[in-house]
Design a protein around this nucleic acid. Structure first.
Lengths: 214, 214
DNA sequence: GTCTATAGATTGATAGAC
DNA sequence: GTCTATCAATCTATAGAC
């Protein structure tokens, strides 16, 4: 297989499992079965490698998200109605669990994303925010339109709660080390998505006057 | 001041802001104004230092949590009624935002906890889980009693969503780097707690037959 | 493009004087 | 308890042969 891709795959696994700093380039190249010097040849630096790992998976996810959210917005605009909250949530949540092809390796990447929110002296966090910005802005706009009775502050924080719940779900679902905790409560992706949409839908809609009237 | 405490304070800040691996013992001792060798003298190793940092803050939080949850359980038991969901949530959430004394430094620790869920080759994660286990078990039991119509799987995952939302709230509220994102949506702790309880209460109670009848 | 070899810096930890 | 000095290991990155 392509050397670059081999490195990306190995880096994804190790960044996700050990963390950016703890995953050394020696470990990565060894796991990939390539020479140590090839990381710098192909990517330039360790940080650029992290950027490439994140970008590879995140681009299709956010493109799909954005497309679905834009479609919801234009449909609501045409008929001059508020966008539907559960529909918005599903468009935001579903792509994270796989863009369709859903190749192997997604579990590790999901774990990496979970880390990226906090770790690696903000290196990964910045990369992440940059990729998600367009979808995030549109998401806030649609949520505001779907929840017209809530203040901007309320909408903003409920959106943050959703992001937190989603991140937790992804990590719990994919990262090893939670097996013992999950025991008999294992859930497949579709079940998880359904539970998330229902949880966040009820949580975000709480206090809305229109609640339940649609 | 006490040298040990000085080291703990500096380590807390640096672990939180840079991450466990990125925060070197040289940086920690320099920031604490003490000699490099004193970390190993007082704590034994870098990992033991992390353990001490976490334990110092987490013990009072979880003791308070446990006490309040136990009180709810015994009150419900006496009167032979289901425990009240918002009350459970408040008992679980409130202590995380400060145990009352709420000394300075809590913001950094909150950030550290956010990291600990994922980072540091599971070192911090294990420490965290060990500390939270008693409160977590009681929490699951009370949630099950408060939501008798839900399956164990549903209760478990909604609890995970709560943990995710809570963690996100803490990090957003305390860690630097989110200032630009929060802009005009800043909220004080009491407001945040209220929003969390209302969000999670609605989200967790969704689908319950008794919903709204209490 | 891929390799060896190594530079150059930084890390956690410790021995031993005070 | 606190200090200096240093070891041994590890890290990222690069020079240069093939």
């Amino acid at each position: 297989m392509d050397t670059k891709e081999e490195i990306l795959n190995a880096a994804e696994v190790l960044f996700a499992r050990a963390g950016y700093h703890a995953a050394s380039m020696r470990a990565i190249t060894e796991s990939a079965g390539v020479n140590l010097a090839l990381v710098n040849y192909h990517f330039g630096s360790k940080e650029a490698l992290l950027e490439a790992v994140i970008a590879r998976r995140l681009r299709p996810v956010n493109e799909l998200r954005l497309r679905r959210l834009q479609e919801i917005r234009s449909r609501a605009g045409e008929r001059n109605i508020s966008p539907d909250l559960p529909e918005i949530l599903r468009a935001y949540i579903e792509p994270v669990f796989g863009t369709g092809e859903s190749e192997r390796g997604w579990a590790d990447f999901a774990n990496l994303i979970g880390r990226a929110f906090t770790e690696t002296d903000e290196t990964a966090q910045k990369i992440l925010l940059r990729h998600m910005k367009p979808a995030n802005q549109l998401m806030l706009e649609l949520l505001g339109a779907a929840l017209p009775d809530l203040s901007g502050q309320e909408v903003f924080w409920r959106y943050q709660f959703l992001i937190g719940a989603l991140g937790r779900a992804i990590r719990m679902n994919s990262s090893p080390g939670y097996e013992r905790l999950k025991k008999n409560f294992e859930a497949d992706s579709e079940t998880l998505i359904r539970m998330l949409v229902s949880f966040a839908g009820a949580g975000m809609g709480s206090g809305e006057r229109r609640e339940g009237l649609r």
